[in-house]
């Protein structure tokens, strides 16, 4: 009698372990199913919000454009940098070379893409930067992209975790047609999207 119950205990132990491990596998899918369901809701809500935001942005942009038209005509200076998205007439206009930064994380997943549409273009952990990289190895104001003498330069802003190119620590990096560098754990790939600098074109 006791042998049967002893064997049954062993059976129970094996069964419990089997059930827990089996369920851990099977429930991964079940949980994904549940999250799927939620994500669908979240996606719908996010889409609605995105649309609202886009409409609001367009409104403000059209206001800005009309505003800047008035101001820049009066100023008429060549220093003004202009985004490439909305080329404006009747201003002194310089099409600058534009680079696109593709940020990838450790697992080579693309996190985001950003266009360098004005200079100085700052990168760092702080919210006030143009490109925000949320990582402990990134300084609050890590580096900046500048235009100097017709060349586009990435410069370290005194952070200890500097910029890494090809395994070496550098203070400055010249942006070219193609290339990549590392900030913290992020890999940033540089590619060219816009045009090279062209002679200043004045349309009046």
């Amino acid at each position: 009698m006791s042998i049967i119950s002893q064997a049954a205990i062993v059976l129970l132990i094996v069964l419990t372990i089997a059930i827990i491990s089996y369920a851990n596998k099977g429930l991964r899918y079940a949980q994904e199913e549940g999250e799927h369901f939620v994500d669908e809701w979240a996606l719908k809500q996010a889409k609605i919000e995105e649309q609202k935001r886009r409409i609001a942005r367009e409104r403000t942009r059209s206001k800005e454009i009309s505003h800047s038209k008035n101001t820049k005509q009066t100023e008429g200076s060549g220093n003004s940098h202009v985004t490439g998205d909305a080329p404006q007439k009747n201003t002194i206009h310089k099409i600058i070379s534009r680079y696109r930064l593709t940020v990838r994380d450790e697992e080579k997943k693309v996190i985001c893409m950003a266009d360098v549409d004005h200079y100085p273009y700052t990168i760092g952990r702080d919210r006030s930067n143009d490109l925000v990289l949320d990582d402990i190895y990134v300084a609050r104001k890590h580096c900046v992209i500048l235009e100097e003498e017709g060349q586009t330069i990435l410069r370290n802003l005194g952070s200890q975790n500097a910029i890494y190119v090809g395994g070496k620590q550098v203070e400055e990096y010249l942006l070219q047609k193609e290339g990549h560098f590392y900030i913290g754990t992020y890999e940033i790939i540089v590619s060219e999207t816009g045009h090279r600098s062209q002679p200043t074109r004045v349309t009046l």
């Binding site: 009698m1 006791s2 049967i4 119950s5 064997a7 049954a8 205990i9 059976l11 129970l12 069964l15 419990t16 059930i19 089996y22 369920a23 596998k25 099977g26 429930l27 079940a30 199913e33």
Partner: peptide, 25 residues
């Protein structure tokens, strides 16, 4: 439908196997 496929139902064999443990006593 998702309940029919649920891995939690695997507890039922454990409950039946408990019978083997309990009945000799």
């Amino acid at each position: 439908y998702s309940c029919l496929r649920s891995p939690v139902l695997a507890v039922i064999p454990l409950q039946i196997a408990g019978m083997l443990f309990v009945s000799p006593k």
